[in-house]
Every structure is written in structure tokens, then in C-alpha cells.
Design a protein around this nucleic acid. Structure first.
Lengths: 241, 241
DNA sequence: TATTGATCGATACAATGTATCGATCATCCG
DNA sequence: CGGATGATCGATACATTGTATCGATCAATA
């Protein structure tokens, strides 16, 4: 009860029961943040907006995270969890790796902000570790890759390729989305610039790429690149094409 | 001259000449931002602080950039320029590629914020394009890689690996720096967590990695991984080791 | 039933990116 | 050479952000 209230009881408003707060959890908070990022971009992920989407005050979130940066960390790990949903350890090693890589790629394209959070902070969340574990165990089944040092190196190479390739692809997607245009519109808007750069004559190889290359679908490119990487770690050229 | 000034001339302060503004340029602004990021981390790169470091008001910067995001874009491309300083197209193709990759890696370690800016935005600055051009021309010299499609795919694979590997390494460096500790302190602080994760028994491969692996220097690992990638695109296993 | 400890959110605050706009300078034209 | 014009600078302002503080409320315990 209010102790020092100068207004007489007649005018003093009655205590009204605190509205029952929506039950929250770290999971719910993170999912709300992810939904916001998916819908309006990473820069719209604001403690106020996240809390607002949950019908709570901003300070409520500090019961679940200590910092906005921690929210980002949780978001990234939640996406790793998404990749592993329904994943089992079946199939030949190359197929397993390709499947895992594909999961990461499609998750990154579903959540264009994901790639932007990948660099710059270590990935040590339980789900990120589970993803690495899955990669390690798939690699360990490859013939000729036995000692743990080789397994680790191969896994590192695969992981680095996948992350790097996905950063590339997602960057375009994010820029497109941020500009509020369609992919074609965005490419059309950038093409004149690229053309002028090429016209300087200082980029003969890029010119060849722009003019003479066939342009396979991004997914195809990703897969073929992964094949090259797997060839490298297997020390074979079996699946060249 | 002030037109509607009610104070009499006797009390009106004399016009003092505007202090000659420090001459600026996009280059100077970007270098100041880079210096700030190197010294105090990316989150300290503030338009006010950058301008302050140059002895100018914040709004002055808007003569050179339209947005803070544009400043970030320029910073990234400036680092690409750094990588190419003194670079020439000499040496065998594998050596050239290894040299270029090494430049990117060392630049990223010199500027721990660089990796965080890599994902999330397309790299189309003139220096980033020059870097890609150098990679393309080196790859084109590899025997058996002739048509432009193969050259592009190989370059994409190499670039993705390098970026991904560098993100990994730089993330640790950035986290270490951000925590204000030495690398050893930071690793010691994280080790108990990793140990508890492994103790769950759900990560047998990670356990092996943690306990049985020899831990080569990061640079060595980077180089060996690059060798695997180059093996893959060359379709040979020549330099295995 | 009184007390304690946890939890919620109103309020507050400093810092940020950036719009606005008057004041100042440099330049050009007569 | 003097006045007009256009560019450039920075003071001020504002909405928005992350987060500290703290009183008010609830649930559990003694």
C-alpha cells in the first residue's frame, strides 16, 4: 500500500490488480526476435519492438538476456537448431555432408540476417556445436580420413567453404531486401555500375565472367563448389563434372 | 551580417573569422574510422567520434558519406586496398593464390572488425573487385582450368574458403579483444564451458578433437586447408601432406 | 498474517544517427 | 572591384536506442 500519499482516500484510485504478465521464456523471446528480423530486417530488432511484440515492457527482457548482443548470439544458435531438425546420421558420407551444407544454406536464405551475424562472434552455442559434431562424424566416415587431425582439418575446410559461400549469397539477398526491390530490380540497378567498372579495362577476367560465363542457378554453383572441396579433402577427382 | 539583431552594436560581439576547417576527404574520413575501429572496436565507430578525431563536427561527414552504412562499406573496401598494396602477378599459380589468401588473412587479423562486416553486404567496391580479379587471373593459369565457367567456380570456392576461415579466426580475436583479456585468459575462461558440454557425452567427435588433436598454429591450419581446396580445384592430390 | 524475496514496468538518461537551417565562405559576374 | 549566388560548415534539435534505477506488485514462506 502506498504510505505517503497526500491525496485523501476518497480521491485516491483503488489498487487495480497487476495485469497477469504473458509468460515468457528465452525460447519465446528469441523466436520473437527472429520473426522480427525475418520480417523487417536485423536493424528492426530492437529490445522495445521485441518486447512489444510479446506484450511486455522492454526491461522485461533483461530477465532472459543481459545484453542485446546476447540476444543476437541466441538467435544465431536457434537457426543452427533449425538446421538440425529431423536430421539423422544416415547416408553415405558425401551425401550427409551435402545435406548438412544444404541445410545451412537454405536456413541462411530463409533468414537473410543470419550471415551478417556469423562473422565477428565465435560460434560456440550448443546447436552450433551439434552442427559441427554432425559434420565431424560425417567426415570421419570418409575413406582414408582416419586420424582426428585430418578429420578436423577436413571439417574446417568444409565449414569455411559453406560459411563463405553462404555469406556471399545472403549478402545479395539482404541488400535486395533492404532496398525494397525485387532481385531483378536490384541487379538491374547495379548493372550500370558494374559495366562502367569493366569498361575501365582494368578487369579483363571480370569482363570475361560478366560476358562469357553461363550463369547457373546459385544452388547449382554451391553444390558444384562443394564437390570440388570434397574432392580436395578426399584426395580424389572421382566426381568431377 | 546579422540583420535583425536587437542588441546595440556596442554590445554585439564582433564577427570572428570562421576557424579554417581541416581539409577532409573520403580517404581521410575512412582512415580515421579504421583507426578508431582498430583501437576501440567496431562499436566505437561513431559519426561523432570519427568527426571528433578529425577536429570536425559530426554533420561534416555527410559531405562525404550519406549514411553510416556507407562508411562501413568504404572501410571494408579500404582494407581490400591494403591487401593489394605492392602485390604483383608474379609466381606460380598456387603460390600466387596462397599469397593473396595470406594477405586477406593477415589483414583480417590486423583489423578484427573486418570479418564482422564481410557477411551481410555485397562486396562490389573497386578494391574488392580488384582482389577478385587477381584471384581469377591466378586461377586461370592453373593447368586444366581453361573455360571461364571453371575458372569462376574455382575462384568462388577459394574465396569462400578464405572468407569462411578468416571469419572463424577473427571471431575469436574479436571476442578476446572485446573482453579486454589476453587470448590465453579468454580461452581459459571458456574452457570450463566447453568441458561441461563435452561431458554430456553427446559430442564424441568434439571430445576427440579437444583431447586427442595436435593443435597446429592457426596459420599452419589455414595453409593446409587452402592446400586441400587447391587440390580439389586442380583435380590432383599432388601436394598432400 | 506479516515478511521476505523475486519480478515487473515506469521513469530516466546518456548516446546515437540524422534533418534542418542559419551563418559563413568562395566564386563568379557585372 | 563590389554584390549576388551557390556551396559548405556546424549549432541545434529530435526521435530512437540500450540500459540503470527503483518503487510497486506478486508469490512464497515463516
Amino acid at each position: 500500500m502506498l504510505k505517503n500519499d497526500s491525496s485523501p482516500i476518497w480521491e485516491r484510485p483503488e489498487r487495480q490488480p497487476r495485469p497477469v504478465p504473458v509468460p515468457l521464456s528465452r525460447e519465446v523471446v528469441v523466436q520473437a526476435a527472429i520473426a522480427l528480423a525475418d520480417a523487417e530486417g536485423l536493424s528492426s530488432v530492437t529490445l522495445r519492438k521485441v518486447a512489444g511484440a510479446l506484450g511486455a515492457g522492454p526491461m522485461r527482457l533483461y530477465g532472459y538476456i543481459a545484453t542485446k548482443e546476447e540476444l543476437f548470439v541466441l538467435m544465431v544458435d536457434a537457426i543452427y537448431a533449425e538446421m538440425l531438425e529431423g536430421e539423422d546420421a544416415t547416408g553415405a558420407w558425401r551425401a550427409r555432408i551435402a545435406r548438412l551444407a544444404g541445410h545451412l544454406r537454405s536456413a541462411a536464405l530463409r533468414h537473410p540476417w543470419f550471415a551478417a551475424l556469423l562473422g565477428g562472434r565465435p560460434q560456440q552455442g550448443p546447436n552450433a556445436l551439434a552442427f559441427t559434431e554432425a559434420m565431424l562424424s560425417a567426415v570421419a566416415e570418409a575413406p582414408g580420413i582416419d586420424d582426428i587431425d585430418t578429420v578436423f582439418l577436413a571439417t574446417k575446410v568444409i565449414g569455411a567453404y559453406v560459411v563463405g559461400a553462404v555469406c556471399d549469397e545472403a549478402a545479395d539477398a539482404a541488400a535486395t531486401r533492404e532496398s525494397g526491390q525485387t532481385k531483378a530490380q536490384w541487379q538491374d540497378a547495379n548493372w550500370p555500375y558494374i559495366q562502367r567498372v569493366i569498361a575501365t579495362g582494368r578487369f579483363p577476367m571480370l569482363s570475361k565472367v560478366a560476358h562469357q560465363m553461363t550463369h547457373p542457378a546459385p544452388g547449382t554453383l554451391f553444390g558444384r563448389g562443394l564437390d570440388r572441396v570434397l574432392d580436395g579433402i578426399a584426395g580424389t577427382t572421382s566426381t568431377s563434372r
